[in-house]
């Protein structure tokens, strides 16, 4: 094991995703305190051009057509092969849809510990401590990092990028793809983009967002009315979209859209980490929730502990009356 901190680079359609830079920034901050080197692992079909954009001490590249979209099996096998031959101290993997599939597989295969849902990684009394979110963000767990290779899957939108030195990287190395890629049991991987939506919530200045607190599809009408009265568009948390009450294009969060409106008015949304990821950078966040411990209040500018129906109706009365 060397004092190396390795980051798995996530990219889509020729661009590293934001979380990649967040993890490189995190790795850099830890590296500074203990002299470790920061390594970026860049897999893809042809990714040479991306290597130049990565601020790391070393970029290790593996190119293969099957690595094009970073699909789970090919990525996990390639990553495991590299890590096994030259184990680093920490492996940082984004806790995204792509990363989630890889992190647990790699950790289980190598028999290394995994700390998932990590939102902070900091020195405390000379000891590196990871903080993970549990129970929908209602509880945090502090975990001591041992002196052994450890996989960490870290939340997107959580780590600052200010510690990053300017790219290009120190060195760029090329590795052969592992032989196992010839025997994958993933036969095809197709990427699809969504059709254009009726409303683009990422461009909206004002958003009224509803969550499971709205209780039924019929009650959505009340939220629509509030949105209309405020000149806002209606968006929602994931469960409402899964229930088919609103189209996918209205979903805010990790697997939905990231929004940054001037106003985000959240009604009956608990504020699970996956939701916060999509809206915490809104300029003004007002949240109504009957649970005073709802994590949404941790990102809100103004909070109201109340029944959303009462507040919505009172608002409507004022605005329309």
């Amino acid at each position: 094991m060397s004092q190396r901190i390795t980051v798995l680079v996530e990219h889509l359609e020729g661009q590293p995703t934001d979380v990649t830079f967040e993890l490189l920034g995190l790795a850099r901050r830890i590296a500074k305190t203990n002299g470790a080197a920061v390594e970026a692992l860049l897999f893809g079909e042809t990714v040479r051009h991306l290597a130049q954009t990565l601020p790391a001490d070393r970029v290790v590249m593996v190119e293969h057509p099957l690595l094009r979209y970073l699909a789970p099996e090919a990525t996990a096998i390639t990553l495991t092969t590299l890590l096994r031959t030259d184990p680093p101290w920490l492996v940082l993997i984004p806790n995204t849809s792509l990363g989630m599939d890889v992190a647990a597989w790699v950790a289980a295969t190598l028999d290394w510990p995994l700390i998932a849902y990590c939102e902070a990684l900091e020195q405390h009394d000379g000891q590196l401590v990871a903080t993970a979110q549990l129970f929908g963000g209602k509880i945090l767990a502090d975990v001591k990092l041992e002196d052994r290779p450890t996989v960490i899957s870290a939340l997107a939108g959580t780590f600052a990028t200010d510690a990053l030195p300017p790219a290009p990287p120190g060195t760029i190395e090329h590795r052969d793809p592992p032989a196992e890629l010839a025997a994958l049991r993933t036969r095809s991987v197709v990427l699809e983009r969504p059709e254009a939506a009726d409303v683009d919530i990422t461009r909206a200045e004002k958003i009224v967002a509803v969550g499971r607190g709205i209780e039924s599809k019929d009650n959505l009408e009340l939220a629509e009315q509030v949105a209309e009265a405020l000149g806002a568009v209606l968006a929602a948390s994931r469960p409402l979209v899964d229930a088919g009450w609103l189209p996918r294009s209205r979903q805010v969060g990790k697997s939905g859209l990231k929004v940054k409106p001037k106003l985000y008015f959240a009604l009956g949304i608990s504020g699970a980490p996956e939701h916060l990821e999509g809206m915490k950078d809104a300029e003004l966040i007002i949240a109504v929730n009957k649970d005073p411990k709802a994590p949404i209040f941790s990102v809100a500018d103004y909070g109201v502990v109340a029944d959303l129906f009462e507040v919505a109706e009172a608002l409507l009365e004022r605005l329309e009356g």
Partner: peptide
Amino acid sequence: LWAGITMT
């Protein structure tokens, strides 16, 4: 994946 992008 995110933003309505899917992988089959």
